[in-house]
Design a protein around this nucleic acid. Structure first.
Lengths: 226, 226
DNA sequence: ATAATTGTCGAACGCCCGTTCGGGTGTTTG
DNA sequence: CAAACACCCGAACGGGCGTTCGACAATTAT
C-alpha cells in the first residue's frame, strides 16, 4: 500500500530504474506511453485524457500501463519532471561559462524558445497542468521551477547592476519575461509560423531589454496624475 | 432534443432571458450558481469541478441546476461570455474619446489589470478554460476575444505610426503584451501583493513601451552573428 | 377556487473513469 | 527441466460523473 508516492528522494524514474538494463523493449514501450500521454494530455487536458485513450494511442492494453507507471499522476509527473529538469539543466549548462549578463540573457531566451520548439506539448503541460499535481510530487516540480526562476532572476539582477539600469521592479520584469515564454503555446507553432524560433527569441530578447531600459517617450511628465 | 446549443443568435442569457422580469429570487439563485461555478472551476478546473460540487456550493440541489442552465457547458459559456464581453466593451468605452494612441495604450493596460483585480477567477477561466468549449459556443467566444485583440493591435499600429517606431514585429509585440496580462493569474494576487493594480499597470505600460522603442544597449553590432 | 406555471429536489440511469485481479505467455536463471 | 521472473491483457470492481425523471410545493393567472 502507498504506491502512489515513491518512498525516498523522488526521481524521474518510472516504476523501477531499469534504464541500466540492456532491455530495450521495455524502454521503447515506456517512451511510447510517455509520448502518447504527452500528446493526448496536451490536446485534451489531464482530466479528460483517459488512461484507456493513452493506452490505445501507445498500442498497449490499459492494464499494461501499470507495468510502467504507478498510476496516472505518476505518469504526468514523469512528463513534467523531464521537461522541467531538462529546461533547468540546459540553462545552467549554456550560461555556465558566460560572463556578460546581457549575453546570458540572450542565451536564456533563445534556449527557452528552442526548447519549446523541440517539445511544444511537454512545455504546454508545464504551463497548463502543473496544478494537477499534489503533495510531494508537486513540491519537487515546483522546486525545479523555482530554481529556473531564480537563475533567470539572478541574470536580470546582474544586468541591472552592470548597466546601471533604473529598473523599477525586477520581479515584475522577470515575470513578464516568463509570461511571454510560457504563453507561447497559446499562439506560436514553429512548424506553421513564418518566424523561426531563432527570430522569435531575438525579438523577445530585444523587447525585454527595451522594457528594462525604458523609453524616452515616457520622460515628459513622470510622477503624478490627477 | 438538441438542448445543449441554443438556436439562434447566442447570447449571455441563461436558459431564458428572465432578466426583464421582476422576479428577483430567480436572478439571485442564478448569480449564486455562476459565482460558485466560477470559484470551483478556477480552483479545480472545468473537468474536475462537478455539477454536484457547484450545486452544493451554491446551496441548491444538483437537479435544480438544470432550471438555470442547459448543462455544464452552457454554464461555463455564460461565465466566459460575461468576462470576455465585459473586457471588450469596457475597452471600447474607455478608449472611445481618446485620440493619442500612447494614452489609449496606457488606458488599455490599466483597465485590463483593474478588470483582472475585480474578477480574478473569471479572467483565469478566460485564459485557462476557453479550450473546454466546442462548436458554436467556442466560435462566439473566440470572436469576442479576437475583437479584443484587434482593438489592441490597432492601438499598437497607431502608436508605431505616430511616433515613428522602428518596431520589427507588432504581432509579436502585441502577443507579448497579452502574455503579460493573461499570465497574471499565475502569480499576482492584488489582495496579497504589495503592488496595487494601478502600480502594476503602470509597470506593464512602461515595459511595453520600452520594448517597442528598443534599447541603446543593443546598438553595438546589429546585423550578424557567427 | 381552480388551473397553469415555476421552482425544487430525491432518486435513479447509463456511462466512463482509474485501477486491480487472475491468469496467461514467453524468457531468463539455477 | 523446473523454477523464477518480466511482460501482457481480458474482465471486472467500485465509484463518480452529467443528466433526467417524476412527484411535490409555491406562486401566479383566470
Amino acid at each position: 500500500m502507498g504506491k502512489t508516492i515513491p518512498e525516498q528522494p523522488f526521481a524521474s524514474r518510472a516504476k523501477d530504474d531499469r534504464s541500466t538494463a540492456h532491455n530495450s523493449s521495455y524502454n521503447e514501450r515506456n517512451d511510447a506511453i510517455i509520448k502518447a500521454a504527452t500528446m493526448l494530455i496536451a490536446r485534451d487536458g489531464y482530466e479528460k485524457a483517459s488512461m484507456r485513450a493513452v493506452a490505445a494511442e501507445a498500442g498497449v492494453s490499459p492494464a499494461s500501463m501499470y507495468h510502467y507507471f504507478d498510476g496516472k499522476e505518476a505518469m504526468l509527473f514523469t512528463i513534467l519532471f523531464r521537461a522541467f529538469s531538462g529546461l533547468e539543466s540546459n540553462l545552467r549548462m549554456k550560461t555556465h561559462l558566460i560572463e556578460d549578463p546581457l549575453e546570458q540573457m540572450r542565451i536564456m531566451i533563445a534556449e527557452h524558445v528552442m526548447f519549446f520548439a523541440n517539445d511544444m506539448d511537454g512545455l504546454k503541460l508545464c504551463s497548463h497542468e502543473l496544478d494537477s499535481m499534489r503533495g510531494k510530487a508537486y513540491e519537487e516540480l515546483h522546486r525545479i521551477r523555482r530554481s529556473y526562476y531564480h537563475h533567470t532572476r539572478e541574470i536580470v539582477n546582474n544586468l541591472v547592476k552592470k548597466y546601471n539600469l533604473k529598473v523599477c521592479d525586477s520581479h515584475v520584469a522577470t515575470m513578464s519575461l516568463f509570461s511571454s515564454l510560457n504563453w507561447l503555446y497559446r499562439w506560436y507553432d514553429p512548424h506553421t509560423s513564418s518566424r523561426s524560433p531563432a527570430v522569435l527569441g531575438k525579438l523577445f530578447f530585444e523587447q525585454f531589454i527595451g522594457g528594462l531600459t525604458g523609453s524616452e517617450l515616457l520622460q515628459q511628465d513622470n510622477g503624478e496624475e490627477t
